[in-house]
């Protein structure tokens, strides 16, 4: 049997152990990228085989936290894809300003880079005080990191560059302090942020949102899981609310496409159609 086919069997067993022992369901994930992540996890913890990962998952308390940390969405950067943050600032914020309260859900917040980016945009647009950002992830480890808001200093230049290209009105360094080899984001940016565990695979709608940001998460999902997540987003959004997906993500292959209108060709920002029917 080819090594790769043996990996498929081992990964299947690993996935079952995660489900049966810990309640995390990865069956709806796109298989090819999931396989790569499991093999990367195996390399990172220096396990001789995937089966060894399964054994540790079953018998070693606490190992699941490492596993979930490694299998959750990858690290992002502040103001990643600056044109998207520019569109959020210029096209979306003026509409958000018309609502008395602005609820924003960032689904799959990873280490929080984009949460703080959003908070900065809201601050600079004068909307922060009536905004509330719900930053969710299914990985506790990721949430803990996100809450710290500490990033490597060597990233600061790229972040600053992104910030300016995204239409930032000041200097990114206004929003962090650099110490040792790290930058720490201003505590005040966290004031209106709630970090919480939420799994798009198994959890439901938890509030009415004016904006949902979920970038480069759906690309890792299979069809059914993508539809589930999009259904949650649709049902969470107020009419006229916005959904911001990753640049290469779209509703092209989704049954939900009719419920949204795309703002422009350049960015994957959608608006929950005023005219669209709510399907039950």
């Amino acid at each position: 049997m080819h090594t790769s086919d043996r990996h498929d069997i081992e990964i299947d067993l690993f996935r079952r152990a995660l489900m049966l022992r810990h309640g995390y369901d990865f069956t709806g994930y796109a298989p090819a990228s999931f396989k790569r992540r499991v093999l990367a996890l195996q390399a990172a913890v220096q396990a001789p085989t995937v089966s060894r990962l399964t054994e540790r998952l079953l018998h070693e308390d606490g190992f699941v936290r490492t596993v979930i940390g490694r299998l959750s969405v990858p690290v992002s950067e502040m103001f990643r894809d600056p044109s998207v943050f520019r569109a959020l600032r210029e096209d979306v914020m003026p509409v958000l300003a018309t609502w008395p309260q602005i609820n924003i859900w960032q689904a799959g917040c990873a280490h929080g880079e984009e949460v703080y980016s959003l908070a900065i945009v809201l601050r600079e647009c004068g909307l922060y005080e009536r905004a509330h950002i719900f930053a969710t992830d299914f990985s506790e480890e990721a949430l803990a990191r996100a809450e710290e808001g500490i990033y490597p200093l060597h990233e600061a230049r790229a972040y600053s560059d992104n910030y300016l290209r995204a239409g930032g009105t000041g200097s990114l360094s206004d929003w962090y302090v650099a110490r040792y080899n790290r930058i720490k984001l201003d505590e005040s940016l966290r004031k209106r942020v709630t970090f919480a565990r939420h799994n798009l695979v198994s959890d439901g709608v938890f509030g009415e949102m004016q904006l949902i940001v979920c970038r480069n998460v759906l690309i890792y999902f299979g069809d059914d899981l993508q539809e589930r997540a999009l259904g949650l987003f649709r049902d969470s959004l107020v009419h006229g609310g916005f959904l911001c997906l990753g640049n290469r993500e779209s509703l092209a292959y989704s049954a939900m496409a009719d419920d949204f209108e795309r703002l422009s060709e350049e960015t994957a920002i959608y608006r929950r159609g005023i005219r669209a029917r709510r399907t039950i």
């Binding site: 298989p31 990228s33 790569r36 992540r37 990367a40 990858p74 990753g246």
Partner: peptide
């Protein structure tokens, strides 16, 4: 493959993208 994204093939065959390391 779009710049900045890994291109993978899923059964189908269909295209898949990732922003993993």
């Amino acid at each position: 493959a779009p710049p900045g994204y890994h291109l993978l093939v899923e059964a189908g065959p269909r295209a898949a993208l990732s922003v993993d390391d």
